[in-house]
Every structure is written in structure tokens, then in C-alpha cells.
Nucleic acid binder design. Structure first.
Lengths: 138, 138
DNA sequence: TTAGATGCAAACTTTTTGCAACAAA
DNA sequence: TTTGTTGCAAAAAGTTTGCATCTAA
């Protein structure tokens, strides 16, 4: 928590309990929650917290590069505290979204895209869809 | 147009002027339009066309695997008549979304994801972001 | 003290739904 | 004739905005 306070200060953001708590939730979960999900897991601790504040805070954190916004083909956005670009895989049965880290083949992929399109690439969003090991058994 | 009629019939879909026209627009463009954009380009020719019909038609076509829905991190969905899975690249300056075909490195990517996650993979959505050659010059 | 954040309600955007009239097969 | 489609309006869902109050610095 002290560390998160520090990070917010470094970005010249006022350190409020609401911000800290939203940021903390994102850092501690691997579930890539939506704004609504974050709001629901917070409103016990912060009964006066409003969904608008969640959205404003998430927007602020995205603007400062502290979290990233995901778009997994759903009707709402998800958020991820891991800013380093990494692919995600979503289970079409249970709906969970998982990170995939340490991919070796991405570098080659980027190079091929660059060669084919002549774009000056900045970042990418890679989403895979299928059935997770648990759902495969059922 | 005859060909599109044929395709709709093969899927046991009633062939209406609205459906044909929406399907045709998607087949002829490379711009990955949104529902709204399709509606706008149609309402001169079909003054009674409603946006709800566009959405219903797009949904029907997606369900039958005749088009695919894209989610390029925007607030609305785009649609693509090329069903074969292929990556897309979006210019962060001018906003255009382009197809990338004939990627050689995707197969290796899929295999690595499969090995790392043990998911039974079905499809993927790969989006790259950067500056297009035209915008680089400006 | 002051710049900026919160929280409520209202607005806005995109997409979906209900249903009566209509058109393709 | 029957089954499914269209088109309107209303609703739903997600997100943003305006503004008065409040709070961190």
C-alpha cells in the first residue's frame, strides 16, 4: 500500500482512499475485472463510493500508464494492472480471462507485421479463445 | 449479388433486400465499418431502413459465420466479411483498421499459447497499434 | 487556501427487445 | 399460408458529464 501511494505521488496524483483501493484491487487480482466488478467489490468497504468515481479513477490510471484497458470482445471493458504488453486467453465456457506471460514467439510476430504493413508499431492486443483445462474435463 | 443470394439460401436465411445490401457492403469494403456506418451508407438507398435491422442482420450473419465481429478497443464493434482469422492493425493517428493477410508466424504463436495454457484453442483476435506509412510522413 | 477529487443524478452512446405490420418462400 | 423479417419506439447496459461539496496538499 505504501508502494502504491508512492507510485501515485510520482505521477503527481492526489492520494485518496478511493484511488488507493481501486489501484490495490487491480494489483492483487488476476481476474481482469470490469468497472462494475470493481465497484461491487468495493461498496461494502466504501458505502458512498460511486460507479462514476470508479470510471474516473480507472481513466486516470490508464492515462498515466499505471493500468491497461482490455477489450476481449465483450460489451464492457476489463482492466489489468500489468502494463507490460502480454497476450490474454479467454475461456468460452466459463468466461475467465487469463494472462499469458513469457511468450517467445511474439517478437517474430511483431517483426513480420512490421515488414508486411510498414507501420511504426507501438503496442498490440492479442486475445485467444478456447476451452480452459478445467472446462475441458466437464 | 447472385452469389450472395446463394450463400444466404445455403444457410436457410430468407433473402431480403436489406440483408443482401448489408452483406454486400461488408463484402465490398475494406474499412471494417461499424453498424452505424453501415446504416448511414444505406439510408439513402433504403429510407425506411432502421438501425435495429442493421444490428439484427449483422447478428444473424455473425451467428452463421458469414462475417466476423471485431473489437479494436473502441466503444463500438466493427464488422469484417473476411471470416478467415487474420490479424488487424489500427493506425492511432487516422484511425483506419487494416487487414494483415498471409502471416507465417501465427502458427508458431498458437502452438506456444497451447503449450503454455493447455487451452483447447478455437480462434484468436490479434490487434496491432501504431502509425501507418501515410501518417508517418505527416 | 486552493487545485483537484468525489458522488449524485442526469445525459449520452451503443446495442437489444417487444410487437404489430409486412414480405419471402 | 406460414414462417421469419422489418421497423418503430422503448428499454437496457455501459460509460461520461455537470456541478456542488469535500479533501489532500
Amino acid at each position: 500500500m505504501l508502494e502504491l501511494t508512492q507510485i501515485l505521488k510520482e505521477h503527481k496524483l492526489k492520494v485518496t482512499p478511493q484511488r488507493l483501493c481501486i489501484f490495490k484491487i487491480l494489483c492483487e487480482t488476476t481476474e481482469h475485472p470490469t468497472a462494475e466488478a470493481i465497484y461491487n467489490s468495493l461498496k461494502n468497504e466504501f458505502p458512498t463510493m460511486s460507479l462514476a468515481t470508479v470510471y474516473k479513477t480507472l481513466d486516470t490510471l490508464v492515462q498515466h500508464g499505471l493500468i491497461q484497458q482490455l477489450n476481449v470482445g465483450e460489451d464492457s471493458f476489463r482492466y489489468d494492472a500489468t502494463v507490460l504488453s502480454h497476450p490474454h486467453v479467454k475461456c468460452v465456457k466459463c468466461g475467465q480471462v487469463m494472462d499469458i506471460h513469457n511468450m517467445q514467439t511474439i517478437k517474430g510476430l511483431r517483426e513480420e507485421v512490421k515488414a508486411l504493413t510498414h507501420f511504426d508499431l507501438m503496442h498490440e492486443q492479442l486475445y485467444f479463445f478456447g476451452t480452459c483445462p478445467t472446462c475441458q474435463k466437464n
